[in-house]
Design a protein around this nucleic acid. Structure first.
Length: 879
RNA sequence: GGUUGCUUAGCUCAGUUGGUUAGAGCGUCACAUUGACAUUGUGAAGGUCAGUGGUUCGAGUCCACUAGCGACCACCA
């Protein structure tokens, strides 16, 4: 056996180990030698945006998902971890626009569409490569042969097919709707891409024919077509249904008065002006009351030609001019300053959003569909969460999902962005005569122009669970049953996936869309479980960000401490749905744990030059109390860890593992092994420790495994340990606990009385089990005597009673006080437990087990009390 | 405004359907260490589980209210 270095050096081994795994082909589940009926276990990586390299959040995602994958692979599942990246249309376009082009003083319009897209692809090739390299560094056991990109050829086919199917079903439609419009990006935004910023502005009270009403946007008056009041508002009841001529800056115009419950009678004067073309609420009111729409603001955010002398002004300029003119005309009642309201802005560039009517593609979430037996997409998507087909972890997110889903409006899926999936749509002609062609290929004939828009990025990422698994090629309509879909290939093997693991912040943005799209395309849920992790925060609880400079770069961290330490620190101490703090110190502490693991291995090999890993032990192999105890503890721990994994409690599993390895095995068993010197149990425990630790710390465990088996097998595909119930031995647990307590007590006495730790204490006993172990661990010398004459302190537990010859060194009064305190404590516990057991209500209603536990507790306390009292009396006699 | 989460040791957090004397890591203090361990080991100190009330034989855990902090959603002209 070659000399093993003192510490594990991750930088030296990690890349080699990853290469070994990759070369083995076992990342691809098709290469796992499994029985035909082996179950699949699939996780598809939430595709990181190619806008930037991976951050700690991604590291945490990969740590969690890879843990699940490795655990299930070892358990004998057909484990597939499918990697990929997201083109993130708007985000990417803006990054290229802002960073690469701005330096040269260019905008994308200067370059033109084609040239610009070339720039985007150049940019994304670089970041994409970095991301994929990082994902390897983090140890993710990805099947690279199935790698996907949301904007590659396969996914283009999927998006086109999806749109055509939806169009055929009437699920997507072209409509003129009021949309969130960013005048800078020149694109629509989805509702959840709008960010609200609080702003202090003015509230204008304007004279409005027979009304006085309050508005923060007087310039929209040019587009007013109605006034709305709350139904039954006595102030205005008589006016409802009537038309009025209103004086305005461009002359008089006509409005209708309507009653609508969306109006808040307590706000302003209780009457509001209705501008259907430039306000969402007003649009909704106009729809309900059949009121005409008049657009006055264009796609540049400027006043349109129908605004007379204000045409061409921005909305801000127009507001100033119009207010000035209205003041001259005496139309302003008064102006309220310091009015706080929320301003809608673009989440990418911060520009103020203008609601304007625009022709867009929409997905009708409320349309009743034949394939769902008359249910809508929304209803189906709600159903699968409510009936538990899709489970959320933690559970409370079910409500967030269903609430959001119930309020969902038709989804605007077109974006005026260059970078993204193109619509398979062509137009011919203008205005009322405009013709639309929807199909895979351009229509024949002249004059057809392709729809310049691209899809909302979530449309393609919404298909991620099945577009990565061969859809649409792997889905055929069943010949026999209409509407029924027959899956083949990967889709049949791996869909639905088992877990979607992602941050709770995109639960609505992404998760909901995946559910809808999968239900529509293959009438199947995309995943069985949704596991939501929290955000990774810095040590002060602040969100990590580049501008603050408080971010920890996962690659730096990995270089410094190793991937295993990084993974452990991300997995242990974090719970689903809750944010976690991470500091370098925490990662360093797990680096120490990895070193500990390494040194356990080093000890084993040094202790015995024939040391080998052992698959199984029988009862007869367990020679001493410590053997029986550690093997029993180990099998208990196997049960515990497996159970915690199954329940998504990774942190608890990790803690149980750490406690076993460090506190039980290293601190106690190995110390005793130095005395007892046997290695079969050592080999057995190390074998299991490596397997149990592998999902958390894949590199160091594989490295040790490789060294031990000399490259003949790979830990990654070894079998997950199953607890051997026969080896769980309650008596050894009790006996060993007693031994530990005696040792601890003696050590404690040493500390309390400042006795040199090196000094061997003379001890007398009538009998002593595990004598050698006790002597070495507690640094005592036991002398067996039939009658104890010597003065000393007595230390006693269940099976052991020792008299320490320390009278001269110890302050007897202090020792008496110590015992008295313990006696009082025990007495109060006994009283408490007795009272409880005498309580008729308790005996009547508590479960039998609990009563039993309390009875045995009472017995235990009484025994302890008896021992302590004896010790005390003994001490009194001595003094 | 609506929904939701958090408040447990100096710090960071566990605590699984209510049931041992409420746990861990880091930090602190003391001691030890040439023996597998960029250290590690041993021991100690440190908590009225945010507050109030309720349900229960029994509450850190369930309910109500209060306070502080956070997140998400909606957005009101």
């Amino acid at each position: 056996m070659p000399e093993i270095p003192k510490t594990y050096e991750p930088q030296k081994y990690e890349d080699k180990i990853y290469a070994l795994w990759e070369k083995s082909g076992k990342f691809n589940p098709d290469n796992l030698k499994l029985p035909k009926n082996a179950k699949s276990y699939t996780i598809i990586l939430p595709p990181p945006n190619i806008t930037d390299k991976l951050h700690l959040g991604h590291a945490s995602i990969i740590a969690i998902e890879d843990l699940l994958i490795r655990f299930h692979r070892m358990k004998g599942y057909r484990a597939l971890y499918l990697p990929g990246t997201d083109h993130a249309s708007i985000a990417t376009q803006n990054v290229v626009d802002k960073n690469s082009l701005k330096e040269k003083g260019l905008t994308r319009h200067d370059l033109g569409r084609e040239k610009f897209l070339e720039e985007v692809w150049k940019f994304l090739r670089v970041t994409q490569a970095t991301i994929l390299k990082q994902a390897r560094k983090m140890g993710g056991s990805f099947d690279w042969s199935r790698e996907a990109f949301t904007l590659d050829e396969q996914r283009k086919k999927a998006v086109t097919k999806m749109f055509l199917d939806m169009y055929a079903e009437g699920l997507v439609y072209r409509g003129k709707r009021i949309v969130n419009w960013c005048p800078r990006c020149k694109s629509t935004l989805a509702d959840d891409e709008v960010e609200y910023k609080e702003e202090t502005g003015k509230l204008y009270w304007i004279k409005y024919g027979p009304f006085v009403l309050a508005t923060s946007r007087p310039e929209t008056k040019l587009g007013d077509t109605a006034v709305a009041i709350y139904p039954g508002d006595k102030r205005y009841a008589k006016m409802v249904g009537k038309k009025f001529l209103i004086p305005g800056v461009l002359g008089e115009f006509e409005i209708t008065v309507v009653a609508d419950k969306e109006v808040d009678p307590k706000f302003g004067s209780g009457a509001i002006k209705v501008t259907p073309a430039h306000d969402f609420t007003d649009y909704a009111i106009s729809q309900r009351h059949n009121i005409a729409m008049k657009q006055i603001i264009n796609e540049d955010g400027k006043m349109m030609a129908n605004c007379g002398k204000y045409a061409g002004l921005t909305t801000t300029e127009a507001r100033k001019a119009i207010v000035a003119d209205m003041e001259k005309m005496g139309l302003i009642d008064h102006i309220e300053e310091g009015y706080k309201h929320n301003l809608a802005t673009c989440y990418r560039c911060g520009t103020t959003i203008e609601p304007i009517p625009s022709e867009q593609w929409f997905l009708a979430v409320d349309k009743k569909l034949k394939r769902f037996g008359g249910k809508s997409l929304k209803e189906k998507a709600l159903e699968v969460a409510k009936n538990g087909k899709i489970k959320f972890h933690p559970f409370r997110f079910t409500k967030r999902y269903t609430d959001w889903m119930s309020n969902l409006h038709d989804w605007c899926i077109s974006r005026q962005i260059w970078f993204g999936h193109e619509f398979p749509v062509w137009y011919k002609g203008e205005g009322d005569k405009k013709e639309i062609f929807v199909g895979e290929k351009a229509p024949k004939g002249k004059g057809w122009v392709k729809d310049p828009d691209t899809f909302d990025t979530w449309f393609s990422s919404g298909m991620w669970s099945f577009s990565t698994l061969g859809w649409p090629a792997c889905a055929k309509a069943s010949a026999g049953k209409p509407g029924k879909i027959v899956k083949t290939g990967d889709l049949a093997k791996f869909h639905p996936t088992q877990v979607l693991e992602t941050g709770y912040e995109i639960l609505t943005l992404w998760v909901s869309r995946m559910i809808m799209m999968s239900l529509f395309a293959i009438n199947e849920i995309p995943f069985e479980n949704v596991y939501l992790h929290g955000m990774v925060l810095d040590q002060f609880g602040k969100k990590m960000s580049k501008s603050k400079g408080n971010g920890i770069n996962p690659v730096d961290m990995i270089e410094k401490f190793g991937t295993d330490a990084a993974r452990l620190s991300l997995l242990i101490g974090s719970t689903p749905g809750n944010d976690m703090r991470l500091s370098e110190e925490k990662i360093a502490s797990y680096r120490n744990f990895v070193t500990k693991l390494w040194n356990i291995y080093r000890y084993c090999v040094h202790a015995d030059n024939r040391f080998a890993l052992v698959e199984k032990v029988a009862k007869k192999d367990l020679k001493s109390l410590s053997d029986r105890w550690i093997v029993s503890r180990l099998n208990k721990t196997i049960e515990e860890i497996t159970k915690n994994f199954d329940e998504y409690k990774f942190s608890l599993a990790g803690e149980a593992l750490e406690k076993f390895i460090w506190n039980d095995f290293a601190d106690w068993y190995l110390e005793i092994n130095k005395i007892e010197k046997k290695s079969k149990v050592l080999g057995y425990v190390l074998d299991k420790i490596l397997k149990l630790s592998h999902p958390f710390a894949p590199f160091v465990t594989e490295k040790i495994w490789q060294d031990m088996c000399e490259g003949r097998c790979i830990l990654m595909v070894e079998k997950w340990p199953v607890a051997d119930k026969k080896l769980i031995d309650k008596k050894s647990q009790v006996d060993f606990a007693s031994l530990q307590q005696v040792v601890t007590k003696i050590r404690n006495i040493r500390t309390v009385y400042h006795i040199d730790p090196g000094k061997t204490i003379q001890v007398f006993a009538k009998k002593a089990e595990n004598r050698e172990v006790l002597e070495k661990l507690a640094r005592i010398k036991i002398e067996l005597v039939s009658k104890i004459d010597a003065k000393g302190i007595v230390v006693a537990e269940k099976n052991t009673k020792l008299t320490l010859a320390l009278t001269d060194l110890v302050d007897m009064e202090k020792e008496k006080a110590r015992l008295e305190k313990e006696i009082t404590n025990l007495e109060s516990l006994i009283v408490k437990t007795e009272t409880l057991l005498k309580n008729k209500n308790f005996v009547k209603s508590a479960p039998k087990e609990i009563i039993m536990i309390n009875k045995s507790k009472l017995k235990e306390y009484s025994e302890k009390l008896k021992i302590q009292k004896e010790l005390f009396d003994n001490l009194v006699k001595l003094c």
